[in-house]
Design a protein around this nucleic acid. Structure first.
Lengths: 333, 333
DNA sequence: CACTAGCAATGTCAAGTTATGAGTGCTAAT
DNA sequence: ATTAGCACTCATAACTTGACATTGCTAGTG
């Protein structure tokens, strides 16, 4: 479909635009291809007609379209090795055995956001993937207790509970034992339904005054559902990119970062490093998201890099690939 | 110092500017004061010379200076009662007894941010004010445990710990018991030093292989130090204000919201509702922060509203006052 | 047939121009 | 003490201009 030179021109334009953020004109490519600018222009025209390039206005140079970036990522870019400098910073983290996996993940993504100037996000594992390991109920004073849930991934959730009436500590204790006996091993997102259908019918047999306690716990344990650890690296880095040069663009992306459905839009289910460009992200048309699920057996979640569509794909893909591998290696020890 | 009409003119200008965000000209005040625009201008000139008013350029109307807002807040504004509508929304929260104090605080500040379109912040109590109530150590697998700290205010912190070598569960258990015996009742910020000077010298008597455990716990418990619960309401609300109409202003305030010393800049030590305008905030020259410490005996922290200097002071002050009172009433039950 | 030289056409951008309107400061009169 | 009147200043928006970059097209060339 595309001639060799056309592919090569597309590649050059994408890479030049990634570097400079300015539309690329035909003249600037003459030397590299040893043809006249008119020839380049002819090829550019074809590339534009096929949807790989765009113009900002009739007499501007060309910039890659989303289709163009996609073609570049899928067919043209050449994997570069991670630079020695970058490698050094990351190796330090993964060779430090006293860091927990979570700490290593957070630190490495912070480094990526630092060296790339993009924004990095880590989403902890979804509640459906966490099995309840222990429920702890700790009394604070007459009316208040703290409920703590610990999951098999080491994730901890807590919620303070206010009991309308003073309840005997022993009853609280019994409830706690019952919950542990019945709920350990349950995926976090099934806790509410098991509370309702398995605990509720029998709790009266064990615990006096059970209604107060049951209601309080039901509300507390249900509220964990959509809680999710989010860790940001370089949250405002993306604002440094020249594409965010209007007030509206900046406000818009910041609002999206703070919005409630950000988690669901960013979460990745695929096991490899994937690239989503512009509309493909379903998050924001102006950005590219490179992301992957990591899974160490004990622990899983999503790693994501958010940057402009004009992203340094070769570099970011390799960095993320490298980190994913090292996380999974470390996690399997 | 200031004549009655001059005070009244200042009040009008502040209130008009709060409402419209546009400089106020002399003509627009003629009707209200039944004098000519020239007379108003003469007074404006005096107010400007005394530092209460400013001009954006030589032929613009006047806007209040920081000193002008300060004078308005201290001397001119008249406390308005909270509107019935606002009151209704807030009462619902404080009359719901099954909400914990923390939930009530969060919900009420979210409502304030909603109805005012400013940004609300809640800072949980500082670690120095939290006494350790319990340390829980929960094993996940051979190499990993979760350490959980519970404080008397119901605040929970947790940290996963990776042990380089496999350690006998019994030893972990003993360490946990020792930590509880020695540390319960300690303010959170004194935990590290007590670990070092009281636990370290004796832990060897109780626990085999204590070095691995001690080091891991030291690192984990020290990392809690500056952790602090921050809860935002309407974090991006402030961007809706017309004063944030350049890219730089938006980037600047967002960066400040994300910065590490945000907590220390916002924390309030005074027990009443206080107003900090512009430079007085020591946080950002373009904003006003209205804030107060709340203290229920069991629980304390800071409530803050961040908005433009052109803030609806009468309303915000009363809302915050109302919430503070209700929090403390509820907390003392 | 692939390539090229040349050129008119079209757009951005920055700088300069103009007209309009809002609002001030000052002065002389009441 | 207050006012009417006027010259003055400045922001803003609309328009103009010239410099520049780049394109699409056409007529040629090897």
């Amino acid at each position: 479909m595309l001639g060799d030179r056309q592919k090569s021109i597309l590649k050059s334009i994408v890479e030049e635009y990634i570097k400079t953020a300015r539309p690329v004109g035909s003249k600037s490519l003459c030397k590299r291809f040893k043809v006249s600018s008119a020839t380049i222009r002819n090829d550019m025209l074809i590339l534009e007609q096929m949807g790989y390039l765009e113009k900002q206005h009739i007499s501007s140079g060309r910039i890659p379209s989303e289709k163009g970036y996609r073609y570049y990522v899928d067919n043209l870019m050449e994997p570069k090795k991670i630079s020695g400098e970058d490698m050094l910073k990351l190796e330090k983290i993964f060779q430090n055995n006293s860091l927990t996996l979570n700490d290593a993940i957070e630190k490495s993504l912070e480094i990526i956001s630092d060296i790339t100037n993009y924004t990095a996000v880590i989403l902890g594992s979804a509640s459906r993937d966490n099995l309840l390991t222990k429920v702890e109920i700790i009394p604070l004073n007459d009316n208040n207790v703290v409920a703590i849930l610990i999951t098999d991934k080491g994730h901890v959730e807590n919620k303070q509970i206010s009991l309308n009436e003073t309840v005997d500590t022993k009853e609280v204790q019994k409830t706690s034992e019952l919950l542990n006996k019945m709920l350990v091993g349950t995926p976090l997102d099934e806790v509410p339904s098991r509370l309702e259908f398995e605990i509720k019918p029998i709790i009266g047999n064990y615990v006096k005054n059970y209604e107060v306690l049951y209601n309080a716990f039901y509300e507390a344990l249900s509220s964990f559902q959509d809680d999710r650890v989010i860790h940001w690296g370089g949250k405002t880095n993306i604002l440094k990119q020249p594409e965010f040069n209007t007030v509206d663009d900046v406000k818009n992306i910041i609002s999206k970062f703070e919005s409630k459905d950000m988690v669901s839009k960013i979460e990745e289910t695929e096991d490899e490093v994937k690239v989503y460009i512009g509309k493909e992200t379903e998050f924001d048309d102006n950005v590219t998201v490179v992301k992957t699920k990591y899974n160490t057996g004990k622990n899983e979640g999503t790693l994501a890099i958010i940057g402009p569509k004009r992203m340094d794909y070769e570099r970011v893909l390799n960095l993320l690939e490298y980190i994913k591998e090292n996380i999974e290696k470390k996690g399997n020890l």
